[in-house]
């Protein structure tokens, strides 16, 4: 993308805008399609869906697939657990990542080198499932809400992303505050954090989506504690009921046929996708505003 030479700046800008809008519109269409496809199938009668060929409009409109999902007990309770873990998990995650990031962004910090290596390595090594399970058991985390939150509190990825953002902030800001006698925590809390809103919003989104979408931990650690199972886990169970085909032993073909005849897993799968995505879509604009519009550092610099 070499800089153009003979362009009149304004005309060049206009051409650029048009081309850009065309490209973005193409992206829009291409990326909107899968979601609309899912939505259409979720609203289409499952017996008709089998015939294929649904694109973005339902052929035989129905809410039956959603009704099928919502008749299961435990969804509402699961929803509350999911919301709780999302909120608590995100807050814990943000707190740890931003503090660690600040500490690591301080070039004068003694243990900086050690801390960053220590953290980064955690991204690439894992002891495996069995030791982790035994650790959780020994910490008495099994069968509790905290098993969702505590293990994920420290995430090196998030720390580094936030740190790289902080590195971009003028160091002079801190220096002057320091001369005014502010301690390190005050500098972090009063000066650095407010400037980091865009990256904090991004990390909050990552954390929240991660918490919201995970179900395997619920299954693995809280399967026998229905009071703490999450929405995603309950939905997985619903989905399973329609997917018996492959897993069971096929003793009685008639039973199998009866089971499969009721509702096709395709439709349920799609409806579930919509059910779990909608809350994210609702919350999204509140976070989005922090990272789609630019901000002016100059205002705070002085």
């Amino acid at each position: 993308m070499a800089a153009p030479k003979a362009f009149n700046a304004t005309r060049g800008d206009k051409v650029f805008d048009v081309v850009n809008i065309v490209i973005m519109s193409l992206v829009l269409i291409v990326t909107l399609y899968p979601f609309l496809n899912v939505l259409a199938i979720s609203l289409n009668e499952s017996a008709d869906t089998v015939k294929g060929g649904i694109t973005i409009v339902p052929r035989v409109f129905t809410f039956e697939n959603y009704q099928q999902i919502f008749q299961y007990e435990g969804l509402v309770r699961g929803l509350w657990v999911s919301i709780l873990r999302t909120v608590v998990g995100t807050l814990f995650g943000l707190a740890s990542a931003s503090m660690l990031a600040y500490v690591l962004s301080r070039p004068d910090f003694q243990a900086r080198k050690f801390t960053s290596i220590f953290l980064v390595v955690t991204m690439y090594v894992s002891g495996g499932m069995i030791p982790i399970y035994i650790l959780f058991r020994d910490l008495d985390l099994l069968g509790t809400f905290w098993v969702y939150v505590l293990p994920g509190v420290v995430s090196a990825f998030n720390v580094i992303v936030i740190r790289s953002f902080m590195d971009g902030l003028p160091y002079a800001l801190q220096e002057s505050a320091k001369l005014d006698g502010a301690n390190d925590f005050t500098i972090f809390w009063r000066i650095i954090l407010p400037l980091c809103k865009p990256v904090l919003a991004t990390i909050a989104l990552f954390l929240a989506v991660g918490q919201w979408n995970s179900w395997f931990d619920s299954y693995l650690y809280n399967g026998r504690h229905p009071e703490w199972t999450t929405l995603q886990f309950e939905l997985m169970k619903v989905l399973q009921s329609t997917q018996q085909g492959g897993s069971g032993q096929m003793i009685n073909a008639n039973d199998m046929a009866q089971k499969m005849a009721q509702i096709s897993p395709e439709s349920i799968k799609m409806a579930i996708t919509i059910v779990v995505t909608v809350p994210i879509l609702i919350v999204y604009p509140f976070l989005q505003k922090y990272f789609v519009s630019g901000m002016t550092l100059g205002a705070v610099k002085s």
């Binding site: 089998v50 085909g245 199998m256 046929a257 005849a261």
Partner: peptide, 12 residues
């Protein structure tokens, strides 16, 4: 095939 593997389509 076995019927359980395509019965959805047959039902349609």
């Amino acid at each position: 095939n076995q019927e359980w593997d395509y019965s959805e389509a047959e039902n349609a």
